[in-house]
Design a protein around this nucleic acid. Sequence first.
RNA 1: AGCGGGGUGGGGUAGCCAGGAUAUCCCGGCGGGCUCAUAACCCGCAGAUCGGUGGUUCAAAUCCACCCCCCGCUACCA
Length: 668
Amino acid sequence: MRGMSRTFIGVAWPYANGPLHLGHIAGCYLPADIYARYMRLRGEEVLMVSGSDQHGTPITLHAEEEGTTPEEIAERYHRRNAESLRRLGISFDLYTKTHREGHFRVVQDIFLTLLNKGFIYRKSMESPYCPKCKRFLPDRYVEGTCPYCGYPKARGDQCDNCGRTLDPKDLIDIKCKICSSTPEFRETEHFYLKLSAFEGRLREWVSGKRNWRANTLNLTMNWLKEGLKDRPITRDITWGVPIPVDGYEDKRIYVWFDAVCGYLSASLQWAEETGDKEAWKRFWLDENTRHVYFLAKDNIPFHTIIWPAMLMGYSEQYHLPDDVPANEYLKLGGEQFSKSRGHALWLDDFLERYSADNVRFYLSYIMPENRDATFDMEEFVQVVNTELVGNVGNFIHRALSFTATRFGEVPGLGELTDADREMLSHLERSFRDVGDLLDGFRFKEALKRALELSHEANRYFSSQEPWKLIKGERERCGTVLNVSLQVVKGLLMMLHPFVPFKTSEMWRELTGKGIQESHWEDALGGVEEGRVLRKTPPPFSKIEPFEKVEEREVKEMEEKEYVTVEEFLRMGLVVGKVLEVKDHPKADKLYLLKVDIGEEVRQIVAGLKGIYTPEELEGKLIVIIKNLKPAKLRGEISEGTLLAAENDKGVVSILQPDKEIEPGAPIH
RNA sequence: AGCGGGGUGGGGUAGCCAGGAUAUCCCGGCGGGCUCAUAACCCGCAGAUCGGUGGUUCAAAUCCACCCCCCGCUACCA
């Protein structure tokens, strides 16, 4: 495992249809980054790439909902997610995207090569087509009654009630999920990837991977055991990589075929950008490179079956995945994170409030390596405060600050006692263990081993009582501090892959070097005697819980963007005076208000009947949004709206100025 | 339905594949110590018949069988 010269790290491509949440991070970005940082420290040449997966039907629909283009949606989330990942300190060598010329070329090249070799073939299928939406519907976008259990909202691919896998044709009373009209079935020709042709080779290849994680290996073996089915790799949509064959202008390459090609296209892009166009070959065509892919459990077959099959078919020379350490899921309040339902903690929200180190620390601490884990806000605060701040941070700080204030420099090492020797051997042992665990992708365990060492160091420090030694045994005290500082140095290195920001700073403080320029093994080389140490603030500070953010709603979360002052002013909030209140002729809860807003009198339709009487309203000063787009409500025009508060019990309260002021007075 | 993962003191969690003597660690509770350090740190105590039943074995949290419960996946949510 060690001693290889190069490591390629591929990380699953997040779908650019929404923001990243903590589940994504714990699932693959953080473990990938921990590994990449560790490998670089060990002197490996690392290439870590990923990017936004920007194609597919959900993005098209999202764009339609917002009245914009798929490009706009895909770019928005690409930029936003790239920025979040950068702030979290995920050290990609390149984070790119799939809607790119260079990516298209690679996908089309792989596609054509497989086509020419007979690994891709054409076949007709019957697919639901919505005449009203004028498009073919993906399985998830048709709904109907389940033929097995009678559940009326079964999807085209599966019934959520009884769990059975379905074909859209099985559904009774089939409906288009977008417009509710009845789709018809139309013949459409598609390209199929001949997975069945690779079964033998894949089986042989996988048989050499006995050290893979249980979830990865079992799932893969199971697919192979059941026999591989050829799968269609094109769809009837127009947002995606075009098919490089004439006559298929209305179809695109299916996103999963598209996305995995990104590993290669991103490598090419990286090579180009670094100025050495051939550089990618070292990673893809050289035997001495190791390929590791980080992803979560739902993505396993794409990386252990489909992508390897594609590579095998494409060329004999390309490097296949060596390991695929897939994680389980991070859950929230007992349920899975869900983009669509807004049940999530968004990364950018979180980074507004907490440091990247804090977030990384906790997610590493509970990392769902072998089983689903649960994100718990209280636990987050507690673990950061007790382990990162109280245990490690405190030890580092007490050793450094004691040395700084009493010696001002790193004291020399005198004669060692048994306790010193035990401490140092504990350090070395932990250091080896952490390295071995990281090599084996056991990140959570590695972190805990480092924390244990820190506990041991706190014990050592307490038992040696340097604050007493300083009074009469200065040299002995210096020795204890020297040993402690050696442990600090080791801890900084061991923790660096997990909490890179603060450990870099502290490492420079202690050694004068950047940790990036240091080697993993430098951690055990002792501390530089006589090096001047300044008093520094504690490395980590305690945190407080976020207010109850866990159950926030979709819209709020997803479109959370600040309102600018300009936007606020554009609404045209002004004081209005109610002149007259009449019943709406065709609605039993609406009033028609005549409101003086200074420059003119507006008619406003308000749903206040039964809440306020006309007498209560007439003459009242209220707040009006005058620039609201006029709308007809039951036939009556409403030119603006009034502001009122309403709680979940249905209590409604109108906002009004608290002193007399003339109608039309602007609010800002 | 099939497949994958899991059920361990009040909460969370390690150990299980390669069976063994006081079942790990964090939080929480209780009691003590220290005063270098961010009310931190250190020590001690209470608390688990390791989902259930049966089996293999000198010995089972660990292996086998059956059952119950939770979570996930089933080809576009990490």
